[in-house]
Amino acid sequence: MFDGFIGLVRDIYKTEAFIPLHEPRFVGNEKQYLSNVINSTFVSSVGPYVAEFEHKIADYCGAKHAIATVNGTAALHVALLLAGVKAGEEVITQALTFVATCNAIHYCGAEPVFVDVDGSTLGLSPQALANFLDEFGERRDDGLWNRLSGKRIAAVLPMHTFGHPCDMKGLMAVCQHHGLPLVEDAAEALGSLCTLSPDDAGEENVTKHCGTFGKLGVLSFNGNKIITTGGGGMILTDDAELARQAKHLTTTAKLAHAWRFAHDQVGFNYRMPNLNAALGLAQLEQLPAFVERKRALADRYLGWAEANGVQMIKEPNGAQANYWLNTLLLDDALQRDAFLEFSNAQGVMTRPLWELMPDLPMYRNCRTDGLRQSRWLADRLVNIPSSVVF
């Protein structure tokens, strides 16, 4: 099986050289737009490409507002603040995620609480969330409190893992029942869609982009994402006032004035530079083709997996994934480790799952629900090369 996999990947990418997990593709107007920015001298956050990138991302995702930031973690930090997360409170999230999800919670002075994921989506499980809140949630006049910790539960933060949409129908229902704001970490899910059936959305199916279901959502344009700005992120929201606050906070809370430097609160220097936005615009022009090619790549991997008796993570029912990172589900940790060692020794980069968040020293004391499914998956999941193929 291992030899066959290496042969497949080398045939897909048509090279005998090292094959990375995910690298960017610059085949459009990137150099032209970057040259335009340099010639204009507006290379920082003041420049027309920033506003244009925000407008076109909002249009692509179907959001009313988009606010560009220097990276996805900064976007998450501000989104959580705007959702009302305060120091000393808790945010419920998943342990199966990249560390930025939890770091953003920590930046707010809050603490993550980890509940389990669904095996079908790799995202936060509505049932696990409901079970935790039913057992430990206590409704008070000023919100929902965790009777175990004595802290207020401020928000729920699911992550669309590897571009596979979470069960948004279930998560929205639980959050609505308990009166909790939903903030989506869609850092990996640009180009991923989820469909709400008639009983959720009215008379007809409604298909929406990941990051547009909650009060706020967040995208990432890191160098390994489906499109990149080098480093960058985006806050999505339909709330005009939240959008105004997001832009204000990410621009050092500076009041508009021709020459005075007046600031009305503690803000952050989080705005995306014009250089990065120009790169992002050129990449965005290619995004539909990138998604199409990544889905075709996933189909090829799925064909190989089925022919060889290997499980592969497929997009959930009612969803269309961007297949940001294709993922195999192996038999156990021993097979996973053998596969990782063999493939990387052959110059084909593969990667295990991130360390589960409560296994990291800074989050070791955070509460969990046991994370049975998360730990089972962590022993078996492997990411395989997923760069766009031309």
Rank of each mutant, 00 (worst) to 15 (best):
E341A: 13
A186W: 03
T251D: 11
L334C: 07
G267M: 08
G232W: 05
D142L: 11
E285C: 14
L325C: 09
Q176R: 08
A262P: 05
M234R: 07
V348Y: 00
L216R: 05
Q94P: 00
C61I: 15
G267A: 10
V206D: 06
V174F: 09
G137T: 06
H263G: 07
L340G: 05
K294L: 09
R293H: 06
N269K: 12
M234A: 12
H177C: 09
P24A: 15
E111I: 10
L122N: 02
R260F: 09
N326H: 07
V99I: 15
Y363R: 13
A110L: 10
C175G: 03
S197H: 11
A277P: 04
F5L: 15
G109Q: 07
D3K: 09
L360C: 10
R271Y: 10
Q94G: 01
A110W: 00
S386E: 01
G231A: 11
Q335F: 03
G4L: 14
V43W: 03
A58R: 08
L297T: 05
D199S: 13
R300M: 11
T97E: 01
H65D: 01
G137L: 06
T161G: 01
T250N: 11
I226R: 01
D199R: 13
A296W: 01
L216V: 13
S197T: 14
N103T: 10
E306P: 02
G202C: 09
D11I: 05
K314G: 01
L284C: 14
L381Q: 02
L216Y: 03
T229A: 10
E135Q: 15
H22R: 15
D331F: 09
V388K: 00
G109F: 14
L287A: 11
Y13G: 04
G217N: 02
K254A: 13
N276F: 08
F5D: 00
A128N: 06
S35H: 06
W145Y: 13
N222R: 05
W354K: 07
F132Q: 00
G28L: 11
T237H: 09
V50G: 00
I235R: 07
G84I: 08
K14T: 10
L371M: 11
N103D: 07
Q265A: 14
I12A: 03
N205D: 09
S343T: 15
L281T: 13
M272T: 04
L81N: 02
F213Q: 04
Q265S: 13
Y60L: 14
A201G: 12
L76G: 06
G163S: 07
F53I: 13
H77T: 09
W354G: 05
V348L: 07
